[in-house]
Design a protein around this nucleic acid. Sequence first.
DNA 1: CACCATAGTTAGAGGTTATCACTGAAGTTA
DNA 2: TAACTTCAGTGATAACCTCTAACTATGGTG
Lengths: 218, 218
Amino acid sequence: MVNSEAKTPRERYRAQVRTEIKERAWEQIATAGASALSLNAIAKQMGMSGPALYRYFGGRDELITELVRDAYRSLADTFHAAAQAGSGVTGLAQALRGWALQDPHRYFLIYGTPVPGYQAPDDTTAISSEIMATLLDACAALPSDGPSTPFDAHLEGHRDWAGGHPAPPAVLHRALTFWTRLHGVLSLELAGHFTGMGIDPAQLFAAELDDLAGPPRG
Amino acid sequence: MVNSEAKTPRERYRAQVRTEIKERAWEQIATAGASALSLNAIAKQMGMSGPALYRYFGGRDELITELVRDAYRSLADTFHAAAQAGSGVTGLAQALRGWALQDPHRYFLIYGTPVPGYQAPDDTTAISSEIMATLLDACAALPSDGPSTPFDAHLEGHRDWAGGHPAPPAVLHRALTFWTRLHGVLSLELAGHFTGMGIDPAQLFAAELDDLAGPPRG
DNA sequence: CACCATAGTTAGAGGTTATCACTGAAGTTA
DNA sequence: TAACTTCAGTGATAACCTCTAACTATGGTG
């Protein structure tokens, strides 16, 4: 018998209830944000009473941690798929934006305001570097490169985060700015800071992407 | 008698208590984040009992709104001071970073994950455009300019947010990217996404700033 | 001094997370 | 089949939270 999946019926049931709880949690997060996530409400919605959920999750924080993990996993999968589609960094960027717009609260759960005491568990940083790896691959495939900047020199000495990826500093730099710039536009868009301004976030995003994927800056 | 300030002793007292409440609220936000702000705790800390605070603020939301307003005001003042110091966009950028690092939660209160039901009152958007105006002034003083991009054309038709500032689209574009790019680096830094990576956020920020203030991109 | 607007109080409704002791049912073993 | 063990779900309870309502007491003002 295979150890990994579907062992005892009890475990099957347990896993099913766990995923249903998470589904309800996602619904709740999608409508009201992570701060409004209520174990009580989820329990009531599932027809059972409050403390029952503590059989499945140690508490609110543990549930949120699990959701963060799932969100990271989802983004990593999206990135992998986009990378395999082979449309380079622009494909990755569009995949990122699509993923973010599909559920803004999920994006904020990862990249938004950090919750007070919470800190990401180790495996999320593993998934995070997985994401970074596919981004680095895409950036390495771009035509390189402009003059070396002082920051490139700094990166030469601090490339641990790249997980041993054999890319020149300029590529690391590009991946980093890809991340920060697109996050800059995206997070402001999702937070609604452009709504009152009348400008089109998609075009601003595209402009940043053009500047990123196009010219090796000089 | 002057209408504007220090009228009756009661109003003086009232204003004093209001500011003390806000001070405590800021302390609380600085340590535990905005989501953990508790009127009850503030009241207890001030030696009075819960509901007393409702004489001074309509509720939690109204207090937070006030804090958001103050945060905007503080940032606008910081920007004005930096602009008057006359060190251009780099001065503005450094002022922004210093202001953000001085109290990260205050930054997130403005530019972080939007709180569920809350939406900014009108006057905060007024302050926001005040900030944008000084940024536009600084950007207009930069040497211009590269080739016109498609997004510049879009901005030509959507420049309402600039509040009638007489700047060419390229300058509007630059101000916008100044905002989004620096916010990208800054928000990720404040959220701690660089801590495990070993890179220096200050240098990444500086690199983005160089790219922004230096070459009219091509 | 008398009056009254208002600051602050307690009580309470309704919400939350979380722990505890208990019940009852399901699965396991003799 | 009968006995036993494990565990899901329960209600009660504690300790918080926001916010409303009614009441008291005090300070400023006619």
